[in-house]
C-alpha cells in the first residue's frame, strides 16, 4: 500500500452532482500529475436520496477497488444529511471535513479539521442556481492541497464550455480564496 494513498468521500443528494464532483476532482488531480480514481457508490439514484461518490489519490496507479470506509477527506454537500447519514464514519485522524453550511456542526470526530463554507450562497450569487458542487471543489483544493487550482479550472472549462465554464470557475475560485484566507 502506498504511504501516499489518500481517499475522499463525497456525501450529497441525488441531483446535486456528487458523481460529477468526484470525476472533476479526479480529473484535476490527474492534471496535477497525481494518479487518481473516481467512482460512484453504485446505486439506483433518485433525486434527493442520499448518495456517495469516491476519489482516490496516489503517486502510482490506483489498484484498490473497494469503496472508501476510512477517508482522509469528506465533502458534505448538504448538511441536513448529518445525523441521517454517518458522514464522519471511519474518518482518519488528521482528516479534513469540508461542509457546505453556515451553521454550527456537531459530531465532528476528534482530530478531524472542520472547514465550513456557505457554498450554496456563493453558487446562488455567481451561477444564479443552488448547484454548489463546483464551488465545493474550490474549497477542497484550498483545504487539502490535493489538486492545483489551475488544474481544477482546466477541468471545469473542459466539462462546461463557454460562459457556464467562466461562472463555475469563478465560483470555485471564490471558495478557494475564502478557504485559503481562513487557513
Amino acid at each position: 500500500m502506498g504511504i501516499f494513498l489518500r481517499e475522499l468521500r463525497i456525501h450529497g443528494r441525488g441531483g446535486q452532482g456528487s458523481v460529477t464532483a468526484a470525476e472533476l476532482i479526479a480529473t484535476a488531480a490527474f492534471k496535477s500529475k497525481i494518479y487518481s480514481q473516481a467512482f460512484p457508490a453504485f446505486g439506483v439514484e433518485r433525486r434527493g436520496a442520499p448518495v456517495q461518490a469516491f476519489v482516490r489519490f496516489d503517486d502510482k496507479k490506483v489498484r484498490l477497488r473497494s469503496q472508501i470506509y476510512e477517508p482522509d477527506y469528506i465533502i458534505v454537500q448538504d448538511s441536513t444529511l448529518i445525523g441521517d447519514v454517518n458522514v464522519f464514519g471511519g474518518m482518519k485522524k488528521g482528516g479534513i471535513a469540508i461542509i457546505n453550511t453556515e451553521k454550527e456542526i456537531e459530531g465532528v470526530p476528534d482530530g478531524v479539521k472542520l472547514v465550513k463554507i456557505d457554498a450554496t450562497s456563493i453558487a446562488l450569487e455567481i451561477l444564479g442556481l443552488p448547484i454548489e458542487n463546483t464551488t465545493l471543489m474550490g474549497a477542497f483544493a484550498a483545504a487539502t492541497g490535493e489538486i492545483e487550482i489551475h488544474a481544477l479550472e482546466e477541468s471545469l472549462r473542459e466539462r462546461f464550455p463557454g460562459s457556464l465554464g467562466d461562472k463555475n470557475v469563478a465560483a470555485a475560485k471564490k471558495a478557494y480564496e475564502i478557504v485559503k484566507g481562513g487557513l
Binding site: A26, S36, A38, F39, P40
Partner: peptide, 10 residues
C-alpha cells in the same frame, strides 16, 4: 460492471 464501467481512471 460499475466497478470498471463507471470508474474514472487514467
Amino acid at each position: 460492471g460499475f466497478i470498471l464501467t463507471h470508474t474514472f481512471e487514467p
